[in-house]
């Protein structure tokens, strides 16, 4: 963006610089004014008094409420991430299969679960596991304890939706590959399914790594939906913490910061992996590297790299 911006806004002369300065001051004053107004209202209600914040220095707040909540959030997210990736790749293979009925069935599955809200799937799984006699028997015979039902429901909802999304990401990655990859594979005598498994999907996964990694943030955020089906994750624990100390407002602020830092760290890690990979793929010297890249529709770095820091 920064490159485009310079062209979008002509290099400013003295008058434009003055105008920008005035605009900057007015805009900043407006933003700070709104922020200050909000803070004053919050302070009037006594949210900045010490007794609202002291609980965060006590160890029980962390050992009993926040860390178990964070652990539950991360556990559900991690299991869902692994399962969605595996199922997503399998679905992508099936959706590109040579067997037409399999392709159709997978298409229906994927399009259906992309259209249904995650929460609806979670509530459905949860209520059915608790109320439906047949499902209760099945889950009991599989060794699902009564207190694990909400965990199973959260993971099921997340996996059904996100594996469908990942299937489409992988498929997009395969279409973005040069046709020569597939043709070369076929010409050395691999079968179409071998070509997909050995040549196309591995390349698609690396080409689509940024999209796959950003899906991790989505899964982590959506695991908070577990609050609604009483899964004891971070948002539920925070509610308990807030009512125990009568500081719900402050508690949720602190937990929002935890979530933001967690997701921000994932985003940063994704960016780091991406840049490392781009460097590695490009070889030692970018100027002499062959002009044919495997990236397909992957962005050219000069325009896009700075914006990704969103």
């Amino acid at each position: 963006m920064s490159a485009a911006q310079h062209v979008l806004f002509d290099l400013p002369g003295p008058r434009a610089r003055r105008r920008h300065l005035i605009g900057g001051i007015v805009g900043t004053a407006l933003c700070l004014g709104i922020l200050a107004l909000a803070l004053v209202r919050v302070a009037e209600k006594g949210q900045f008094e010490a007794d609202k914040w002291v609980p965060f220095t006590e160890s029980v707040t962390w050992t009993f409420y926040l860390l178990p909540g964070l652990w539950a959030t991360m556990k559900a997210a991690a299991v869902a991430i692994v399962l969605s990736m595996v199922l997503g790749v399998v679905l992508a293979m099936m959706r590109m299969s040579d067997i037409a009925p399999l392709r159709w069935a997978t298409s229906v599955f994927v399009e259906f679960f992309r259209a249904v809200p995650v929460l609806i799937m979670m509530i459905f799984t949860w209520v059915m596991l608790v109320k439906n006699p047949t499902l209760r028997q099945v889950s009991a015979s599989l060794g699902v304890q009564a207190q694990d039902v909400t965990f199973v429901a959260v993971v099921t909802g997340l996996v059904l939706y996100n594996s469908s999304v990942i299937c489409e990401v992988v498929r997009n990655g395969v279409t973005s590959l040069p046709a020569g990859q597939r043709e070369a594979g076929l010409s050395v005598g691999l079968s179409p399914s071998q070509v997909r498994r050995l040549i196309l999907v591995p390349q698609a996964l690396t080409a689509m790594l940024p999209a796959l990694l950003s899906q991790i943030v989505v899964i982590t955020k959506d695991s908070a939906l577990g609050y609604i089906i009483t899964y004891p994750e971070l948002v539920s624990r925070t509610r308990q913490l807030g009512s125990a100390n009568a500081n719900t407002f402050v508690a949720y602020l602190v937990v929002a910061v935890i979530f933001i830092l967690l997701n921000w760290a994932i985003t940063k890690a994704a960016e780091w992996i991406e840049s490392r990979q781009r460097r590695r793929r490009r070889g030692p010297d970018p100027r002499t590297a062959p002009s044919v890249t495997m990236e397909g529709s992957a962005p050219t770095d000069s325009l896009d790299a700075p914006t990704r820091g969103a």
């Binding site: 955020k221 939906l225 609050y227 609604i228 948002v235 937990v255 933001i260």
Partner: peptide
């Protein structure tokens, strides 16, 4: 980066 559930709650 904040879950929607948290914002609404």
């Amino acid at each position: 980066n904040t879950p929607l559930t948290l914002i609404i709650v």
